[in-house]
Nucleic acid binder design. Sequence first.
DNA 1: CCTCGTACCGTACGAAACGTATGGTGCGAT
DNA 2: ATCGCACCATACGTTTCGTACGGTACGAGG
Lengths: 188, 188
Amino acid sequence: MRLSTTSYLVLGMVALRGPSTPYELKRATSRSVGYFWNFPHTQLYSEPERLAASGLLAVDLEDSGRRRKTYSLTPDGRAALREWLAAPTPEHFEMRDVAELKLFFNEAGSPDDDVPKLAQEQIRQHEERIAVYEEMVSRYGSEDWARPRMITLELGLEMEHAALRFWTALAAGTIDDLRREREERDVR
Amino acid sequence: MRLSTTSYLVLGMVALRGPSTPYELKRATSRSVGYFWNFPHTQLYSEPERLAASGLLAVDLEDSGRRRKTYSLTPDGRAALREWLAAPTPEHFEMRDVAELKLFFNEAGSPDDDVPKLAQEQIRQHEERIAVYEEMVSRYGSEDWARPRMITLELGLEMEHAALRFWTALAAGTIDDLRREREERDVR
DNA sequence: CCTCGTACCGTACGAAACGTATGGTGCGAT
DNA sequence: ATCGCACCATACGTTTCGTACGGTACGAGG
């Protein structure tokens, strides 16, 4: 069976807390590790079931009252967790930011200038951020950050300035690139 | 029809570039706006189709050679984009970071200390990062960052210290909380 | 007691996203 | 002229998402 990151999150959480019910896992993750790996709470009901089916968790059913399942780690589960922890980690992380998206399209404008500008306030905030980024870049030095597809901000100490350079460069450059590309096409 | 963020990304991109084929969109997004909103390239084939079905894009089929569809913005599409840009933006962004997850479970250890520690080098990097975060926090001040469920790091100028405080606090505190919770239960 | 309200807890299910795998197309090099 | 490779498009099975609903305990107020 194929294990996703969410699977390991469950495994890790059960290892951490000992035998747990889905609801307990939900409470324990929501304000901690959930920040690094977000998912709907329904996964905490379905995922342990999958893991139990593969023998990585053991189930214990409540005999009375509320239907409730308590999951605990099996030796196999512990081994899987251990293996995952030991395995090399991808050097990128993913992010999805609606606000930055909007700013992107706003800055870019549309061919006939018909896309509405965002509120002044939002733009001001954006500019402040850019300024902060630039200051940070100058503090941490600069480097090439380009990466193929998929998320891809550098991790570790590199993270800060890679991310910041990225944002800065994006706001400063890429939009011009797109404009240029468009004008070239329009000439033909 | 329900529009997702990806829908608006397509709309915005077509507004930006003018009439485009999916492949052109793919190239244009992959190294720019795709960083803020990642998705598989197949979406750039299916999503415009959906949008065309709702009349937000117009399709133009190539008559010869390679089967190719060129999409362009309709007035309705432009209106939808405009509406989205004008609408209030959620103040959070999402992230998914496997490395931070691993560090979390590593630091936490397991009840019987049977989960393997990560390599020294990874831990060193983590500690360096924490140090940087703490320095930044002290530069930008501090504030409460707690948030309900769902990703939720503050956006804007707040972003840096909220995110940094979060990481710092997480590494320093939450794990102890979980340990404590576990021990309490074990006593009973 | 006993009901009613409310916070707590669990799951079903349709819709969307994902990602791999595959197959066609054109163009330049040999 | 054909071969090879980069370019481009889509099908389709799997996973994830998130909403919406339904049951369960427990305490407050009658």
